[in-house]
Design a protein around this nucleic acid. Structure first.
Length: 423
RNA sequence: GGAGAAAUGGCAGAGUGGUCGAUUGCACCGGUCUUGAAAACCGGCGUACCGCGAGGUACCGGGGGUUCGAAUCCCUCUUUCUCCGCCA
Protein backbone atom coordinates (compact mmCIF):
# COMPACT_ATOMS: atom_id res chain seq x y z
CA UNK A 1 0.00 0.00 0.00
CA UNK A 2 1.30 3.42 -0.93
CA UNK A 3 1.67 6.00 1.79
CA UNK A 4 -1.09 8.57 1.91
CA UNK A 5 1.41 11.37 2.50
CA UNK A 6 3.21 10.35 -0.66
CA UNK A 7 -0.03 10.34 -2.63
CA UNK A 8 -0.74 13.85 -1.35
CA UNK A 9 2.66 15.23 -2.30
CA UNK A 10 3.65 13.22 -5.38
CA UNK A 11 0.37 12.73 -7.11
CA UNK A 12 1.59 13.39 -10.64
CA UNK A 13 4.71 11.26 -10.31
CA UNK A 14 2.65 8.33 -9.05
CA UNK A 15 0.15 8.63 -11.89
CA UNK A 16 3.05 8.78 -14.38
CA UNK A 17 4.80 5.83 -12.75
CA UNK A 18 1.71 3.66 -12.76
CA UNK A 19 1.26 4.29 -16.47
CA UNK A 20 4.17 1.91 -16.95
CA UNK A 21 1.81 -0.76 -15.68
CA UNK A 22 -0.89 0.44 -18.06
CA UNK A 23 -2.73 1.32 -14.89
CA UNK A 24 -4.81 4.47 -14.96
CA UNK A 25 -4.49 5.76 -11.41
CA UNK A 26 -5.85 9.23 -12.00
CA UNK A 27 -9.54 8.64 -11.20
CA UNK A 28 -8.69 6.64 -8.09
CA UNK A 29 -6.20 9.19 -6.84
CA UNK A 30 -8.53 12.09 -7.49
CA UNK A 31 -11.31 10.42 -5.56
CA UNK A 32 -8.84 9.47 -2.87
CA UNK A 33 -7.53 12.98 -2.41
CA UNK A 34 -11.02 14.40 -2.39
CA UNK A 35 -12.09 11.98 0.33
CA UNK A 36 -8.85 12.59 2.16
CA UNK A 37 -9.59 16.31 2.19
CA UNK A 38 -13.07 15.65 3.57
CA UNK A 39 -11.68 13.21 6.08
CA UNK A 40 -9.14 15.69 7.42
CA UNK A 41 -11.78 18.35 7.78
CA UNK A 42 -14.15 15.92 9.48
CA UNK A 43 -11.39 14.68 11.73
CA UNK A 44 -10.54 18.20 12.86
CA UNK A 45 -14.19 18.97 13.63
CA UNK A 46 -14.64 15.67 15.39
CA UNK A 47 -11.55 16.22 17.51
CA UNK A 48 -12.71 19.61 18.62
CA UNK A 49 -16.13 18.24 19.59
CA UNK A 50 -14.44 15.48 21.55
CA UNK A 51 -12.21 18.05 23.18
CA UNK A 52 -15.24 20.05 24.23
CA UNK A 53 -16.92 16.94 25.63
CA UNK A 54 -13.80 16.04 27.56
CA UNK A 55 -13.70 19.51 29.07
CA UNK A 56 -17.33 19.21 30.16
CA UNK A 57 -16.76 15.78 31.64
CA UNK A 58 -13.88 17.06 33.72
CA UNK A 59 -15.94 20.03 34.86
CA UNK A 60 -18.84 17.85 35.87
CA UNK A 61 -16.49 15.89 38.04
CA UNK A 62 -15.33 19.05 39.79
CA UNK A 63 -18.86 20.46 40.14
CA UNK A 64 -20.08 17.22 41.69
CA UNK A 65 -17.24 17.33 44.15
CA UNK A 66 -18.24 20.86 45.15
CA UNK A 67 -21.85 19.79 45.45
CA UNK A 68 -23.00 22.09 42.66
CA UNK A 69 -25.64 19.67 41.38
CA UNK A 70 -27.58 22.07 39.22
CA UNK A 71 -24.59 23.33 37.27
CA UNK A 72 -23.52 19.74 36.73
CA UNK A 73 -26.93 18.85 35.32
CA UNK A 74 -26.76 21.81 32.96
CA UNK A 75 -23.38 20.64 31.70
CA UNK A 76 -24.77 17.15 31.15
CA UNK A 77 -27.46 18.59 28.91
CA UNK A 78 -24.82 20.41 26.92
CA UNK A 79 -22.88 17.20 26.48
CA UNK A 80 -25.98 15.33 25.30
CA UNK A 81 -26.29 17.79 22.46
CA UNK A 82 -22.62 17.50 21.58
CA UNK A 83 -22.95 13.75 21.65
CA UNK A 84 -25.50 13.77 18.85
CA UNK A 85 -23.23 15.84 16.66
CA UNK A 86 -20.30 13.62 17.57
CA UNK A 87 -22.15 10.45 16.61
CA UNK A 88 -23.17 11.79 13.21
CA UNK A 89 -19.73 13.14 12.44
CA UNK A 90 -18.01 9.98 13.58
CA UNK A 91 -20.16 7.91 11.25
CA UNK A 92 -19.14 10.16 8.36
CA UNK A 93 -15.46 10.08 9.24
CA UNK A 94 -15.48 6.29 9.73
CA UNK A 95 -17.12 5.81 6.36
CA UNK A 96 -14.53 8.07 4.71
CA UNK A 97 -11.83 6.07 6.42
CA UNK A 98 -13.15 2.85 4.95
CA UNK A 99 -13.58 4.37 1.50
CA UNK A 100 -10.04 5.72 1.55
CA UNK A 101 -8.58 2.37 2.58
CA UNK A 102 -10.60 0.67 -0.12
CA UNK A 103 -9.17 3.04 -2.70
CA UNK A 104 -5.65 2.65 -1.35
CA UNK A 105 -5.89 -1.11 -1.71
CA UNK A 106 -6.55 -0.65 -5.40
CA UNK A 107 -3.29 1.17 -6.11
CA UNK A 108 -0.35 -1.07 -7.04
CA UNK A 109 3.23 -0.18 -6.22
CA UNK A 110 4.97 2.42 -8.35
CA UNK A 111 7.57 0.75 -10.58
CA UNK A 112 11.24 1.50 -10.08
CA UNK A 113 12.82 3.87 -12.60
CA UNK A 114 14.64 0.96 -14.26
CA UNK A 115 11.34 -0.75 -15.07
CA UNK A 116 10.16 -0.24 -18.64
CA UNK A 117 6.57 0.37 -19.56
CA UNK A 118 4.86 -2.68 -20.94
CA UNK A 119 1.73 -4.76 -21.02
CA UNK A 120 2.75 -8.36 -20.50
CA UNK A 121 5.58 -10.89 -20.63
CA UNK A 122 6.35 -9.97 -24.23
CA UNK A 123 7.68 -6.61 -23.03
CA UNK A 124 10.09 -8.00 -20.44
CA UNK A 125 13.77 -7.24 -20.94
CA UNK A 126 16.44 -9.91 -20.87
CA UNK A 127 19.29 -8.53 -18.80
CA UNK A 128 21.53 -11.58 -18.43
CA UNK A 129 22.10 -14.97 -20.01
CA UNK A 130 24.37 -17.83 -19.06
CA UNK A 131 25.00 -21.44 -19.91
CA UNK A 132 24.60 -23.42 -23.07
CA UNK A 133 21.79 -25.49 -24.46
CA UNK A 134 22.51 -29.21 -24.20
CA UNK A 135 22.70 -31.13 -27.46
CA UNK A 136 21.34 -34.66 -27.44
CA UNK A 137 22.36 -37.49 -29.75
CA UNK A 138 19.26 -39.41 -28.72
CA UNK A 139 15.62 -38.56 -28.29
CA UNK A 140 15.42 -36.25 -25.28
CA UNK A 141 12.37 -36.84 -23.13
CA UNK A 142 10.31 -34.28 -21.24
CA UNK A 143 10.45 -34.72 -17.48
CA UNK A 144 7.03 -36.33 -17.20
CA UNK A 145 8.25 -39.16 -19.39
CA UNK A 146 11.55 -39.37 -17.47
CA UNK A 147 9.60 -39.39 -14.20
CA UNK A 148 7.71 -42.41 -15.41
CA UNK A 149 10.71 -44.12 -16.94
CA UNK A 150 12.76 -43.96 -13.74
CA UNK A 151 9.77 -44.05 -11.37
CA UNK A 152 10.57 -40.71 -9.74
CA UNK A 153 7.24 -38.91 -9.63
CA UNK A 154 3.72 -40.33 -9.66
CA UNK A 155 1.14 -37.86 -10.88
CA UNK A 156 -1.73 -40.35 -11.10
CA UNK A 157 -1.29 -41.35 -7.49
CA UNK A 158 -1.59 -37.68 -6.52
CA UNK A 159 -4.85 -37.43 -8.43
CA UNK A 160 -6.17 -40.50 -6.64
CA UNK A 161 -5.25 -39.36 -3.14
CA UNK A 162 -5.79 -35.61 -3.50
CA UNK A 163 -6.36 -34.22 -6.97
CA UNK A 164 -4.55 -32.88 -10.01
CA UNK A 165 -1.53 -30.77 -9.14
CA UNK A 166 -0.54 -32.74 -6.04
CA UNK A 167 2.09 -35.23 -7.18
CA UNK A 168 3.87 -37.91 -5.19
CA UNK A 169 7.67 -38.01 -5.37
CA UNK A 170 9.07 -41.49 -4.97
CA UNK A 171 12.39 -43.16 -4.30
CA UNK A 172 15.26 -41.28 -5.93
CA UNK A 173 12.78 -38.62 -7.05
CA UNK A 174 11.88 -37.89 -3.42
CA UNK A 175 15.50 -38.03 -2.44
CA UNK A 176 16.55 -35.62 -5.18
CA UNK A 177 13.84 -33.22 -4.03
CA UNK A 178 15.04 -33.40 -0.46
CA UNK A 179 18.65 -32.99 -1.58
CA UNK A 180 17.77 -29.84 -3.47
CA UNK A 181 15.99 -28.37 -0.46
CA UNK A 182 19.00 -29.10 1.73
CA UNK A 183 21.39 -27.73 -0.86
CA UNK A 184 19.42 -24.49 -1.20
CA UNK A 185 19.13 -24.06 2.56
CA UNK A 186 22.79 -24.74 3.04
CA UNK A 187 23.73 -22.18 0.37
CA UNK A 188 21.40 -19.61 1.96
CA UNK A 189 22.96 -20.24 5.32
CA UNK A 190 26.43 -19.71 3.84
CA UNK A 191 25.17 -16.39 2.44
CA UNK A 192 24.16 -15.26 5.91
CA UNK A 193 20.45 -16.02 5.97
CA UNK A 194 18.93 -17.33 9.20
CA UNK A 195 16.83 -20.40 8.68
CA UNK A 196 13.24 -20.56 9.88
CA UNK A 197 10.73 -23.38 9.83
CA UNK A 198 7.51 -21.43 9.51
CA UNK A 199 3.82 -22.23 9.92
CA UNK A 200 2.22 -23.39 6.70
CA UNK A 201 -1.03 -21.62 7.44
CA UNK A 202 -1.43 -17.97 8.38
CA UNK A 203 -4.17 -15.73 9.73
CA UNK A 204 -5.97 -12.99 7.88
CA UNK A 205 -3.82 -10.16 9.25
CA UNK A 206 -0.73 -11.82 7.76
CA UNK A 207 -2.46 -12.17 4.41
CA UNK A 208 -3.09 -8.42 4.44
CA UNK A 209 0.42 -7.69 5.67
CA UNK A 210 2.21 -8.99 2.60
CA UNK A 211 -0.54 -8.03 0.18
CA UNK A 212 -2.13 -11.35 -0.73
CA UNK A 213 -5.36 -9.99 0.73
CA UNK A 214 -7.64 -8.45 -0.25
CA UNK A 215 -6.31 -8.59 -3.79
CA UNK A 216 -5.43 -12.19 -4.50
CA UNK A 217 -7.92 -13.87 -2.25
CA UNK A 218 -8.76 -16.58 -4.75
CA UNK A 219 -5.17 -17.70 -5.07
CA UNK A 220 -4.95 -19.07 -1.54
CA UNK A 221 -6.58 -22.12 -0.03
CA UNK A 222 -8.83 -20.90 2.74
CA UNK A 223 -9.89 -22.64 5.94
CA UNK A 224 -12.96 -20.65 6.92
CA UNK A 225 -13.71 -22.52 10.17
CA UNK A 226 -10.46 -21.23 11.60
CA UNK A 227 -10.03 -18.05 9.57
CA UNK A 228 -6.72 -19.31 8.22
CA UNK A 229 -5.08 -19.41 4.81
CA UNK A 230 -2.56 -21.91 3.49
CA UNK A 231 0.57 -20.08 2.49
CA UNK A 232 1.26 -19.50 -1.21
CA UNK A 233 4.91 -18.83 -0.35
CA UNK A 234 7.15 -18.63 2.73
CA UNK A 235 7.33 -14.90 2.09
CA UNK A 236 4.04 -14.57 3.94
CA UNK A 237 4.96 -16.08 7.33
CA UNK A 238 8.57 -14.88 7.18
CA UNK A 239 7.84 -11.25 6.33
CA UNK A 240 4.98 -11.14 8.83
CA UNK A 241 7.37 -11.95 11.64
CA UNK A 242 8.13 -8.25 11.42
CA UNK A 243 4.55 -7.02 11.27
CA UNK A 244 3.98 -4.22 13.81
CA UNK A 245 7.66 -4.07 14.64
CA UNK A 246 9.75 -0.95 15.16
CA UNK A 247 13.41 -1.81 14.82
CA UNK A 248 15.39 0.07 17.49
CA UNK A 249 18.03 1.62 15.21
CA UNK A 250 18.78 2.22 11.57
CA UNK A 251 21.64 -0.20 11.67
CA UNK A 252 19.97 -3.41 10.56
CA UNK A 253 19.89 -5.91 7.75
CA UNK A 254 17.62 -8.84 8.37
CA UNK A 255 18.15 -11.94 6.26
CA UNK A 256 15.81 -14.89 6.61
CA UNK A 257 15.37 -18.10 4.70
CA UNK A 258 12.94 -20.93 4.96
CA UNK A 259 11.79 -24.02 3.20
CA UNK A 260 8.04 -24.52 3.00
CA UNK A 261 5.56 -26.21 0.76
CA UNK A 262 3.55 -23.60 -1.14
CA UNK A 263 -0.13 -23.92 -1.93
CA UNK A 264 -1.75 -22.23 -4.87
CA UNK A 265 -5.24 -22.62 -6.21
CA UNK A 266 -4.21 -21.21 -9.61
CA UNK A 267 -7.34 -21.15 -11.73
CA UNK A 268 -7.55 -21.56 -15.49
CA UNK A 269 -4.53 -22.81 -17.38
CA UNK A 270 -4.55 -25.57 -19.92
CA UNK A 271 -2.44 -27.85 -22.05
CA UNK A 272 1.30 -28.25 -22.02
CA UNK A 273 1.90 -25.24 -19.78
CA UNK A 274 0.53 -27.19 -16.86
CA UNK A 275 1.90 -30.57 -17.85
CA UNK A 276 3.98 -32.49 -15.32
CA UNK A 277 5.74 -30.28 -12.83
CA UNK A 278 5.22 -27.04 -14.72
CA UNK A 279 2.32 -25.89 -12.60
CA UNK A 280 1.18 -27.44 -9.34
CA UNK A 281 -1.22 -26.73 -6.49
CA UNK A 282 1.40 -27.78 -3.97
CA UNK A 283 5.12 -27.36 -4.50
CA UNK A 284 8.24 -26.89 -2.45
CA UNK A 285 10.30 -23.75 -2.32
CA UNK A 286 13.18 -22.23 -0.43
CA UNK A 287 12.60 -18.54 -0.02
CA UNK A 288 14.95 -15.73 0.94
CA UNK A 289 13.53 -12.63 2.60
CA UNK A 290 15.26 -9.41 3.54
CA UNK A 291 14.33 -6.39 5.58
CA UNK A 292 16.55 -3.46 4.80
CA UNK A 293 17.21 0.19 5.38
CA UNK A 294 16.00 2.05 2.28
CA UNK A 295 19.57 3.07 1.47
CA UNK A 296 20.63 -0.58 1.22
CA UNK A 297 17.79 -1.95 -0.90
CA UNK A 298 19.53 -1.73 -4.25
CA UNK A 299 22.58 -3.52 -2.91
CA UNK A 300 20.46 -6.17 -1.22
CA UNK A 301 18.61 -6.86 -4.46
CA UNK A 302 21.92 -7.20 -6.24
CA UNK A 303 23.17 -9.68 -3.64
CA UNK A 304 20.03 -11.74 -3.86
CA UNK A 305 20.37 -11.96 -7.63
CA UNK A 306 23.99 -13.03 -7.34
CA UNK A 307 22.90 -15.68 -4.88
CA UNK A 308 20.27 -17.11 -7.23
CA UNK A 309 22.67 -16.94 -10.16
CA UNK A 310 25.19 -18.90 -8.14
CA UNK A 311 22.67 -21.64 -7.43
CA UNK A 312 21.79 -22.07 -11.07
CA UNK A 313 25.42 -22.05 -12.13
CA UNK A 314 26.30 -24.71 -9.58
CA UNK A 315 23.47 -26.84 -10.87
CA UNK A 316 24.83 -26.45 -14.40
CA UNK A 317 21.65 -25.04 -15.85
CA UNK A 318 21.27 -22.65 -18.73
CA UNK A 319 19.33 -19.61 -17.60
CA UNK A 320 18.44 -16.04 -18.32
CA UNK A 321 17.32 -13.14 -16.17
CA UNK A 322 14.45 -10.92 -17.14
CA UNK A 323 13.59 -7.56 -15.73
CA UNK A 324 9.83 -7.55 -15.77
CA UNK A 325 8.05 -4.71 -17.50
CA UNK A 326 5.50 -2.61 -15.63
CA UNK A 327 2.50 -4.66 -16.66
CA UNK A 328 4.06 -7.97 -15.68
CA UNK A 329 5.41 -6.81 -12.32
CA UNK A 330 3.37 -8.05 -9.38
CA UNK A 331 0.95 -5.72 -7.63
CA UNK A 332 3.10 -5.12 -4.53
CA UNK A 333 6.53 -5.10 -6.20
CA UNK A 334 8.49 -2.03 -7.32
CA UNK A 335 10.79 -4.18 -9.45
CA UNK A 336 11.05 -7.88 -10.19
CA UNK A 337 13.68 -10.03 -11.85
CA UNK A 338 12.56 -13.43 -13.08
CA UNK A 339 15.03 -16.25 -13.51
CA UNK A 340 14.18 -18.71 -16.27
CA UNK A 341 15.86 -22.00 -17.01
CA UNK A 342 15.88 -23.36 -20.52
CA UNK A 343 14.50 -26.81 -21.00
CA UNK A 344 15.89 -28.28 -24.17
CA UNK A 345 13.53 -31.23 -24.02
CA UNK A 346 10.43 -29.04 -23.76
CA UNK A 347 12.13 -26.34 -25.83
CA UNK A 348 10.90 -23.58 -23.57
CA UNK A 349 11.95 -21.30 -20.74
CA UNK A 350 10.70 -22.21 -17.27
CA UNK A 351 10.44 -19.63 -14.50
CA UNK A 352 12.31 -20.89 -11.45
CA UNK A 353 12.79 -17.78 -9.39
CA UNK A 354 11.40 -14.34 -8.93
CA UNK A 355 13.36 -11.76 -6.97
CA UNK A 356 11.57 -8.56 -6.00
CA UNK A 357 11.95 -5.38 -4.06
CA UNK A 358 8.81 -3.96 -2.50
CA UNK A 359 10.30 -0.82 -0.99
CA UNK A 360 7.81 0.53 1.57
CA UNK A 361 4.73 -1.04 -0.04
CA UNK A 362 4.57 -4.09 2.20
CA UNK A 363 6.18 -2.31 5.16
CA UNK A 364 3.39 0.25 5.13
CA UNK A 365 0.77 -2.45 5.47
CA UNK A 366 2.92 -4.36 7.93
CA UNK A 367 3.72 -1.24 9.96
CA UNK A 368 7.32 -2.37 9.80
CA UNK A 369 9.48 0.58 10.78
CA UNK A 370 12.78 1.55 12.27
CA UNK A 371 14.05 4.37 14.46
CA UNK A 372 16.24 6.91 12.74
CA UNK A 373 19.22 8.53 14.43
CA UNK A 374 17.04 11.48 15.42
CA UNK A 375 14.43 9.12 16.99
CA UNK A 376 11.88 9.35 14.22
CA UNK A 377 10.12 6.28 12.88
CA UNK A 378 10.48 5.46 9.21
CA UNK A 379 9.18 2.59 7.07
CA UNK A 380 11.71 -0.14 6.27
CA UNK A 381 12.04 -1.87 2.91
CA UNK A 382 11.25 -5.51 2.22
CA UNK A 383 12.59 -7.81 -0.48
CA UNK A 384 12.21 -11.45 -1.28
CA UNK A 385 13.08 -14.07 -3.80
CA UNK A 386 12.84 -17.75 -4.52
CA UNK A 387 16.09 -19.56 -4.01
CA UNK A 388 14.71 -21.67 -5.46
CA UNK A 389 11.33 -23.11 -6.42
CA UNK A 390 11.70 -26.85 -6.70
CA UNK A 391 9.41 -28.31 -9.36
CA UNK A 392 10.80 -26.62 -12.43
CA UNK A 393 14.31 -27.06 -11.13
CA UNK A 394 13.58 -30.77 -10.79
CA UNK A 395 12.11 -30.74 -14.28
CA UNK A 396 15.03 -28.96 -15.87
CA UNK A 397 17.63 -31.00 -13.99
CA UNK A 398 16.01 -34.19 -15.19
CA UNK A 399 15.64 -32.96 -18.73
CA UNK A 400 18.92 -31.12 -19.20
CA UNK A 401 21.10 -33.68 -17.46
CA UNK A 402 19.57 -36.74 -19.10
CA UNK A 403 21.70 -39.17 -21.01
CA UNK A 404 20.61 -42.13 -23.10
CA UNK A 405 20.73 -44.35 -20.03
CA UNK A 406 19.99 -42.13 -17.03
CA UNK A 407 20.05 -38.76 -15.35
CA UNK A 408 23.33 -37.32 -14.08
CA UNK A 409 23.23 -35.59 -10.71
CA UNK A 410 25.25 -32.34 -10.54
CA UNK A 411 28.32 -32.69 -8.39
CA UNK A 412 27.21 -30.13 -5.79
CA UNK A 413 24.16 -32.24 -5.06
CA UNK A 414 25.84 -35.61 -4.74
CA UNK A 415 26.76 -35.23 -1.10
CA UNK A 416 23.08 -34.49 -0.45
CA UNK A 417 21.60 -37.24 -2.62
CA UNK A 418 24.11 -39.96 -1.88
CA UNK A 419 24.03 -41.03 -5.53
CA UNK A 420 25.53 -39.62 -8.71
CA UNK A 421 23.12 -40.94 -11.26
CA UNK A 422 19.53 -42.02 -11.65
CA UNK A 423 19.04 -45.04 -13.89
C1' G B 1 -12.82 -30.90 25.06
C1' G B 2 -14.13 -29.39 30.69
C1' A B 3 -13.03 -25.98 35.13
C1' G B 4 -10.57 -21.67 36.90
C1' A B 5 -7.20 -17.23 36.60
C1' A B 6 -5.20 -13.44 33.78
C1' A B 7 -4.03 -9.75 29.56
C1' U B 8 -1.48 -2.25 31.40
C1' G B 9 4.35 1.40 27.98
C1' G B 10 11.09 -2.43 25.95
C1' C B 11 10.70 -5.53 30.61
C1' A B 12 8.80 -5.88 35.66
C1' G B 13 4.67 -4.10 38.04
C1' A B 14 0.85 -0.26 40.53
C1' G B 15 -3.77 1.47 39.44
C1' U B 16 -11.36 -1.23 40.60
C1' G B 17 -15.60 5.21 37.88
C1' G B 18 -13.29 11.67 37.67
C1' U B 19 -7.01 16.42 36.42
C1' C B 20 -4.64 8.61 34.49
C1' G B 21 -1.64 8.53 28.68
C1' A B 22 -1.36 6.20 33.13
C1' U B 23 2.64 5.65 40.08
C1' U B 24 7.19 3.15 40.64
C1' G B 25 11.55 0.10 39.51
C1' C B 26 14.79 -1.76 35.71
C1' A B 27 16.54 -0.93 30.84
C1' C B 28 17.70 3.02 27.42
C1' C B 29 19.31 8.32 25.90
C1' G B 30 21.43 13.24 27.41
C1' G B 31 23.90 15.99 31.34
C1' U B 32 26.65 16.98 36.18
C1' C B 33 30.63 14.79 38.88
C1' U B 34 35.40 11.76 37.50
C1' U B 35 42.12 11.18 34.72
C1' G B 36 38.59 7.30 32.68
C1' A B 37 34.69 4.14 34.21
C1' A B 38 31.20 2.77 37.97
C1' A B 39 28.14 4.83 41.71
C1' A B 40 25.30 9.09 42.90
C1' C B 41 22.42 13.17 41.28
C1' C B 42 19.51 16.04 37.41
C1' G B 43 16.71 15.73 32.92
C1' G B 44 14.54 12.88 29.00
C1' C B 45 12.31 8.42 27.46
C1' G B 46 5.33 4.86 23.69
C1' U B 47 2.54 4.92 18.91
C1' A B 48 -0.58 7.17 15.37
C1' C B 49 -3.54 11.00 13.26
C1' C B 50 -5.07 16.39 12.49
C1' G B 51 -2.65 21.30 12.73
C1' C B 52 2.36 26.25 10.01
C1' G B 53 2.25 26.44 15.20
C1' A B 54 0.18 26.69 19.96
C1' G B 55 -2.20 22.65 20.64
C1' G B 56 -5.90 18.82 20.00
C1' U B 57 -7.58 13.64 19.42
C1' A B 58 -7.20 8.34 19.83
C1' C B 59 -4.90 4.00 21.91
C1' C B 60 -4.17 0.14 28.99
C1' G B 61 -5.27 -7.71 24.18
C1' G B 62 -9.58 -6.92 19.83
C1' G B 63 -14.72 -5.43 19.14
C1' G B 64 -19.29 -3.62 21.30
C1' G B 65 -22.10 -1.47 25.55
C1' U B 66 -23.35 1.41 30.32
C1' U B 67 -22.03 6.60 31.99
C1' C B 68 -21.57 13.58 31.82
C1' G B 69 -16.89 10.73 32.45
C1' A B 70 -14.06 3.88 31.63
C1' A B 71 -7.47 1.07 32.28
C1' U B 72 -11.28 0.54 36.15
C1' C B 73 -18.33 -1.73 35.37
C1' C B 74 -21.12 -5.12 31.62
C1' C B 75 -21.22 -8.31 27.00
C1' U B 76 -18.36 -10.78 23.36
C1' C B 77 -14.06 -12.56 20.81
C1' U B 78 -8.86 -13.73 20.96
C1' U B 79 -4.60 -15.11 23.53
C1' U B 80 -1.75 -16.82 27.80
C1' C B 81 -1.29 -19.53 32.44
C1' U B 82 -3.00 -23.50 36.09
C1' C B 83 -5.76 -28.11 36.83
C1' C B 84 -8.46 -32.33 34.45
C1' G B 85 -9.36 -35.21 29.94
C1' C B 86 -7.51 -36.70 25.06
C1' C B 87 -3.26 -37.19 21.93
C1' A B 88 1.85 -37.05 18.25
Amino acid sequence: MLEITRIRTEKEAIIEGLKKRHFNAEPIINELLEKDEQWRKGKADLDSILSEMNTHAKNIGLLMKDGKKEEAEAAKTAVAELKNREAALKATVDQLDKDILQLMYQLPNVPNELVKAGKNELDNETVFEAGTTPVYDFEALPHWDLAKKYDLIDFELGVKVTGAGFPFYKGKGAKLQRALINFFLSEAEKAGYTEYIAPHVVNEASGYGTGQLPDKEGQMYHIPEDGLYMIPTAEVPLTNIYRDVILPSEDFSIKMTGYTPCFRREAGSYGKDVRGLNRLHQFDKVEIVRIEHPSNTAKALEEMMEHVKGLLEKLGLQFRILRLCGGDTGFAAAMTYDFEVYSAAQQKWLEVSSVSRFDTFQANRLKLRFKTADKKTQLAHTLNGSALALPRIMASLMENHQTADGIVIPEVLQSFTGFAKIN
